[in-house]
Simulated assay, not measured.
Amino acid sequence: MTTRPLRIVILGLSITSAWGNGHATTYRALVRGLHALGHDVLFLERDVPWYSAHRDLPEPDFCRLALYADLAELHSRWAEAIRDADAVIVGSYVPEGVAVAEYVFRTARGVTAFYDIDTPVTLAKLARGDFEYVSPQVIPCFSVYLSFTGGPTLQRLEQEYGAQRAEALYCAVDEARYAPTGYEPHWDLGYLGTYSDDRQPGLERLLIEPARRMPDRRFVVAGPQYPASIEWPANVERIEHLPPEQHAAFYGRQRFTLNITRQDMIAAGWSPSVRIFEAGACGTPIISDYWEGLTELLPEPEAIFIAGSSEDVVRMLEETGEAERQEMAGVARGIILEGHTGTARAGQLAGILASCMADA
């Protein structure tokens, strides 16, 4: 659906800092895409210490950006922008998100949307009565619930939580910044991700144990917050933090990259990680754990390898020839560039918002 240029306000966790979160790269790809399509975006971000100390994109050139200290400043400075916008989007994990949503409902005249970049985590929190950033009371008030998870979860959001309309809006890759680099591989297998308790068993099984079994191979794990108690094999290199501008080079130096999925997202299925799209756009073949919907997005083994055990990973690293590796990378890259870029996702979002506006 083609649309006229829209005025969009996004209240998101962060677009300025990718420190310890995947929201920033998601918003950057999406908002760059919206900008490329001619839409006007104001991004409102809560100014918090842990991001202000690690801002790798303090002045984005593809949207207007404003930091606000608290709800009072949000109300006093940005009421007019929220009122006059064609659409106002509140993201998951926004500090005091329920109060922010309630303010948006009182103020906005246009379409309102909740963009859940953490849908399985959100549903698990709601089931526990944890309403940190969204609650059962506010969900039905949004014009549309935009979910990082598709499939049956969309029906659940409508039927169990009263969402007026639930639409999948997966993460996406910025195709201008994630592309093959031409570097020769330095590591046989790498992983990029912040430490997570429920992902760590997968990392142990699919990277650390294969590294122990293959001492002549090189491995790498990049990301913050890993406990000092982890015993890394000598052939596993550690990178504490890797800013987004270095991601493409990082992927480009791997023969394969590993994707590990949080347990809530495995249970829900249909929850692609941005790391899959980033690595695929860079032409790096992907080894991933399995969840429902993955092979519908990237067919296996043509575009991705699925691993359930250490033995699977060892076999893939030992038996995959260079021609097969390059062919798989090319298939995945083609699929991602066709349907999972920031520009493609921005067009999808604009169409959803225009449809909501027409319904209203």
Rank of each mutant, 00 (worst) to 15 (best):
G293N: 04
S310D: 08
S288F: 04
E300F: 08
L298Y: 01
I336T: 12
Q326T: 14
G339C: 04
E296P: 01
E311Y: 00
L317K: 03
E318D: 11
M316R: 13
C282D: 12
T295I: 12
E296Q: 12
E302V: 04
A307G: 09
I336P: 00
V314L: 04
A329L: 11
G321V: 09
R333G: 06
T295H: 02
V331A: 08
L298S: 01
M328V: 06
L317C: 08
V274R: 11
D289F: 03
T284M: 08
Q326N: 11
I286A: 04
W291G: 00
I335G: 10
I335D: 07
H340R: 10
S309R: 02
A307H: 06
P285W: 05
E311V: 04
I306H: 05
F277G: 00
P299Y: 08
S310W: 00
E324R: 15
R275N: 12
Y290E: 15
R315N: 10
G308V: 03
F305R: 13
A281M: 03
G293E: 07
V313Q: 09
H340M: 10
I304P: 00
I287F: 05
G280S: 13
E311C: 01
S273T: 14
E296Y: 07
E327F: 02
G330D: 09
L298H: 04
S273V: 07
I335E: 10
H340F: 12
Y290W: 14
M328D: 02
G308Q: 14
P301R: 05
A303N: 03
A307M: 08
A281R: 02
P285A: 09
F277R: 02
A332D: 01
G339N: 13
S310T: 15
L297Y: 03
S288N: 07
I306W: 06
L337D: 06
P299N: 06
L297T: 11
F305N: 00
L337C: 10
P299Q: 04
R333I: 07
Q326M: 11
S273Y: 04
R315Q: 13
E338K: 13
T341C: 06
A323S: 15
V274I: 14
T284E: 02
D312T: 11
A281N: 07
D289K: 07
M316N: 00
M316Q: 13
H340A: 13
R333E: 12
A279T: 05
Y290R: 14
G330N: 12
E318V: 11
E318N: 14
R325P: 06
G334N: 12
R315A: 09
W291K: 11
L337I: 06
E327A: 14
S309K: 02
E319S: 15
A303R: 01
V331C: 08
S288E: 09
S273A: 14
S310P: 03
E327D: 10
I286F: 01
I306E: 10
Y290P: 10
